[in-house]
Simulated scan of single mutants.
Amino acid sequence: MAVNLQKGQKISLEKEAGGALSRVTMGLGWDVAKSGGFFGFGAKSQAVDLDASVVMFDESNRPVDVVWFRQLKSRDGSITHTGDNRTGAGDGDDEQIVVDLRTVPESVRSLVFTVNSFTGQNFSTVQNAFCRLFDTSNGKEIARYDLSVQGSHTAQIMAKLYRHNGEWKMHAIGENGSGRTFDDLMPLIVPHL
């Protein structure tokens, strides 16, 4: 059973997965909050384009690569974004980033996952937002983090995967921010590295 992470919580991926992991997927899902209408009748919803990104950092906490909707694969090939969802329509994950932990270069110490509202709406227009990490080989969910904190923020630093004593761990960061792309969050990410 997956761990429901709280802001700031850290877990060992292998302990939670029950063994060695080779590939994990970070899934991002959301629904657009309905607004207006009388008792829900005639409620309207407007498309919200949330974007998942992951920034790769080296031992000196310098960004070495990024995977996002404008670059769907890391230069080393270890991380792949499955594509941009611009509406949040449908059930389950709306965007996914697949990480092959075996081939992430040794020089990469941490992977920071972010979510941004590319269309600029704040998170009060979103509901049921989550990020989840699962074992790609069997679909078993390892951890889930609820992102649906209503508010005026347009972005969030979701989580960090990092190496510690030869093992991958996960830190649920959950820090709200503003900006349309991961680049706008870089000053907020640095203190978490």
Rank of each mutant, 00 (worst) to 15 (best):
E14S: 15
F38V: 15
G18H: 09
A129W: 01
V55W: 07
K44G: 08
M1Q: 14
G40L: 10
F38A: 10
K7H: 07
L101S: 02
G29W: 05
K7G: 10
M1Y: 14
S107H: 13
N176D: 01
Q46Y: 14
T82M: 11
T119E: 02
G177Y: 06
Q156S: 09
S78H: 10
G120L: 04
R23N: 15
A155M: 00
R86F: 04
P191K: 02
A20W: 10
T181F: 05
K44R: 09
V126R: 00
D93Q: 10
S110E: 05
A89M: 07
Q71N: 13
S117W: 00
A143I: 03
R102S: 14
L147Y: 11
G90M: 04
V99T: 14
T119A: 10
T82I: 08
D65Y: 00
T82N: 14
R109S: 15
L111H: 03
E14V: 14
V48W: 00
V99G: 03
S178L: 08
D84C: 05
D31T: 11
L111N: 03
Y145H: 13
I11T: 04
V3C: 14
E14G: 13
A172D: 01
G37K: 09
V48F: 05
P187S: 02
A52G: 06
G83S: 06
S124C: 04
N85S: 14
G92Q: 06
S148M: 02
A47M: 07
N176C: 06
Q6S: 13
N138K: 07
S117C: 03
S148K: 04
R23F: 06
L72E: 11
P187K: 03
I11E: 08
E175G: 12
S12Q: 03
G8W: 12
P105F: 13
G177T: 02
H81P: 10
F39H: 14
I11D: 07
S148G: 08
S110D: 00
F123N: 00
D65Q: 03
L5N: 04
N128R: 09
L185F: 10
A17L: 11
N4G: 13
G27R: 00
G42P: 10
R86D: 01
T103Y: 11
M26Y: 09
